[in-house]
């Protein structure tokens, strides 16, 4: 099944690859190298002196029960964000795909939230759920539910998950819709003629044929939940209450920019890099096998 394109000689492939190599080197390898270098030192904030500590920063971090707890928080948070944003997006895409009239309008409206920056999304959701003036928390109060994400850890987690997923649904929706439209109509029609109802068609034909899209989105969304949700967490909860929403990347920020502890912050970046690397390898090794291209 595998197709291979082979080049004669070295020069042309090298030239073709060069732009990507340069971009990766400048924006990835150099900063990552710096992070690894700094993670072996304890520098002072102003960069006046540095002390070599070897793996001391890593020992310090991994010996800290609160840092280890942050892994579990991150797993729960990323899992929920991925499931919620992909699930909702798939649901909406399936509905939009079946529309005949006005589908363009629906699509445009569904794509809009993607244009909202995470920090702004955070502020929007915070406004709705503000314990004092929030519209939603007020109605919940009328219904007899006392919403207080400032002290309730579950509510805080729920709120940051929803706020992080919201804008992401649009992005996922775009890909799912494109994926759905790429499925040949003839296959679905054949199944329909054979008497397969909508749900059966979705389960046995549409979903398997959509798997390359789903797999791609899975990888991209987990990376999103790991790194780009910082703005949402910062504006809504600042990692609280207690440490309920302190995900790994938020702790990188907090140690680096609140504590000015650049050694620990760099070491955490390296750990994050390794974790996400492992996750991606796992995904490609085990999940990709079940993907039909």
């Amino acid at each position: 099944m595998e197709k291979r394109v082979t080049f004669k000689g070295w020069i042309l492939p090298l030239i073709l690859l060069l732009p990507q190599v340069i971009v990766s080197a400048v924006f990835f390898f150099y900063p990552a190298g710096q992070a690894i270098y700094q993670s072996l030192y304890i520098p002072d904030p102003f960069g006046l002196s540095m002390q070599w500590v070897g793996l001391g920063n890593f020992e310090y971090l991994l010996g800290d029960p609160y840092y280890r707890a942050s892994f579990a928080t991150t797993a729960v948070f990323s899992g929920l964000v991925t499931v919620v944003s992909m699930g909702m997006a798939l649901y909406l895409a399936v509905l939009a795909d079946r529309l005949i009239k006005g589908s363009g309008t629906y699509r445009t409206l569904l794509i809009w939230p993607y244009a909202v920056a995470p920090a702004v999304a955070g502020v929007l959701w915070l406004f709705m759920f503000n314990t004092r003036v929030g519209v939603v928390s007020w109605y919940l109060g009328v219904l007899g539910y006392d919403w207080n994400h400032v002290l309730n850890e579950t509510e805080a987690m729920g709120l940051v998950v929803v706020a992080s997923s919201w804008g992401r649904i649009s992005y996922n929706f775009l890909f799912f819709l494109a994926g759905l439209q790429a499925i040949p109509k003839s296959v679905i029609e054949a199944a329909a003629i054979d008497g397969a109802r909508f749900w059966t068609r979705f389960r046995t034909i549409v979903f398997p044929l959509l798997s390359p899209t789903t797999f791609f989105l899975l990888v991209v969304n987990i990376v999103y939940a790991f790194f780009e949700t910082f703005g949402v967490i910062h504006t809504i909860t600042s990692g609280g209450p207690q440490q309920a929403t302190t995900i790994l990347v938020y702790k990188v920020f907090s140690d680096g920019f609140v504590g000015q502890d650049l050694g620990s912050s760099a070491a955490q970046s390296v750990i994050l890099l390794v974790v996400v690397g492992i996750l991606t390898v796992v995904q490609f090794k085990f999940i990709e096998r079940r993907v039909h291209y």
Partner: peptide, 21 residues
């Protein structure tokens, strides 16, 4: 030193008291 961050820790711990944990 690191007092801004220590205040963050204190905030977390106080929240545990206010929540009754």
């Amino acid at each position: 030193g690191s007092f801004d961050q220590i205040r963050g820790i204190i905030d977390e711990e106080l929240e545990a008291v206010w929540a009754g944990d």
